[in-house]
Simulated scan of single mutants.
Amino acid sequence: MADFEDVINMRRSIREYTDEEVSDEDILRILKAGMQAPGSRLGAEPWEFVVIKNRETLEKLSQIKPRVKTAPVAILLVANIERAFYKLHWQQDMSAAAENMLLEAVNLGLGGLWNGVAPTEETMQKVADLFGLDNENQIPFCIITLGYPAEGWENKFMDKFDEGRIHYEKY
């Protein structure tokens, strides 16, 4: 396992993967990391997850989100609005869960990619239809692809710090 600073600084969007399978144990650890994210209210977090490993389903999903095609596994993050405490803040809760999952993937030596679904209505509807979501109370938020990074796609440090974006007391 990497130390925390390494995990934060090395995470990159990995768009190509090897064919090596991701273990169920690693998938579970990534899901647990997502559920440890801060939420608007304890016990009212909206997140639910659909783990997708079936090649036929991944192929169908890649017709909507092409980057899914090469991944050995994808996880669809679904906001269950009925569980959300603050009905208008679910995107923040879901984003925190997604980032935790991506960081845990790096910690485990995997790569990941956040594939946006919400707020694009057409994409949301297509994903909802594919997975049987009602798209009113079960909103597809994003798809995280996971796998072992292909050559040239390794997690590595890229300095993105820009002091010019920091403001004190007012903008």
Score class of each variant (00 low, 15 high):
residue 1 M to W: 01
residue 1 M to T: 05
residue 1 M to Y: 08
residue 4 F to E: 12
residue 5 E to D: 10
residue 6 D to F: 08
residue 9 N to A: 08
residue 9 N to H: 14
residue 12 R to L: 03
residue 12 R to M: 01
residue 13 S to R: 14
residue 16 E to D: 11
residue 19 D to W: 00
residue 22 V to I: 14
residue 24 D to L: 15
residue 26 D to N: 15
residue 29 R to Y: 12
residue 29 R to W: 12
residue 29 R to V: 07
residue 30 I to L: 13
residue 30 I to M: 13
residue 32 K to F: 10
residue 33 A to E: 07
residue 36 Q to L: 04
residue 39 G to M: 11
residue 39 G to L: 04
residue 40 S to V: 02
residue 40 S to P: 09
residue 41 R to W: 02
residue 42 L to R: 12
residue 43 G to W: 05
residue 45 E to C: 08
residue 47 W to P: 11
residue 49 F to C: 13
residue 49 F to E: 12
residue 50 V to S: 05
residue 51 V to A: 05
residue 58 L to Y: 08
residue 58 L to N: 04
residue 58 L to W: 09
residue 64 I to D: 04
residue 64 I to T: 00
residue 65 K to R: 11
residue 66 P to S: 03
residue 67 R to D: 06
residue 67 R to E: 10
residue 67 R to F: 14
residue 69 K to M: 00
residue 74 A to K: 11
residue 75 I to R: 14
residue 79 A to G: 08
residue 81 I to T: 02
residue 81 I to L: 15
residue 82 E to D: 15
residue 82 E to H: 11
residue 84 A to M: 07
residue 86 Y to C: 05
residue 87 K to W: 03
residue 88 L to R: 12
residue 88 L to Y: 09
residue 91 Q to M: 12
residue 91 Q to G: 04
residue 91 Q to S: 08
residue 91 Q to E: 15
residue 93 D to P: 13
residue 95 S to A: 15
residue 96 A to V: 09
residue 97 A to S: 14
residue 98 A to D: 06
residue 98 A to Q: 07
residue 101 M to W: 09
residue 101 M to N: 08
residue 102 L to V: 11
residue 102 L to D: 07
residue 103 L to G: 03
residue 105 A to S: 10
residue 106 V to S: 05
residue 107 N to A: 13
residue 107 N to F: 07
residue 109 G to F: 06
residue 109 G to K: 06
residue 109 G to L: 03
residue 110 L to N: 07
residue 113 L to P: 10
residue 116 G to T: 14
residue 117 V to W: 12
residue 117 V to G: 10
residue 118 A to M: 12
residue 118 A to P: 10
residue 119 P to L: 14
residue 121 E to D: 11
residue 122 E to S: 09
residue 122 E to H: 02
residue 124 M to V: 13
residue 125 Q to A: 05
residue 125 Q to R: 12
residue 127 V to W: 01
residue 128 A to E: 02
residue 128 A to N: 04
residue 129 D to T: 07
residue 130 L to H: 03
residue 130 L to S: 03
residue 132 G to P: 11
residue 132 G to E: 03
residue 137 N to R: 09
residue 139 I to V: 10
residue 141 F to Y: 15
residue 143 I to M: 11
residue 143 I to E: 07
residue 145 T to V: 06
residue 145 T to Q: 01
residue 147 G to P: 11
residue 147 G to T: 12
residue 149 P to K: 07
residue 151 E to F: 10
residue 151 E to I: 13
residue 151 E to C: 08
residue 152 G to P: 14
residue 154 E to L: 02
residue 154 E to M: 01
residue 156 K to E: 13
residue 157 F to L: 06
residue 158 M to A: 04
residue 161 F to M: 00
residue 162 D to K: 01
residue 166 I to Q: 00
residue 166 I to R: 02
residue 168 Y to C: 00
residue 170 K to G: 00
residue 170 K to C: 00
residue 171 Y to E: 00
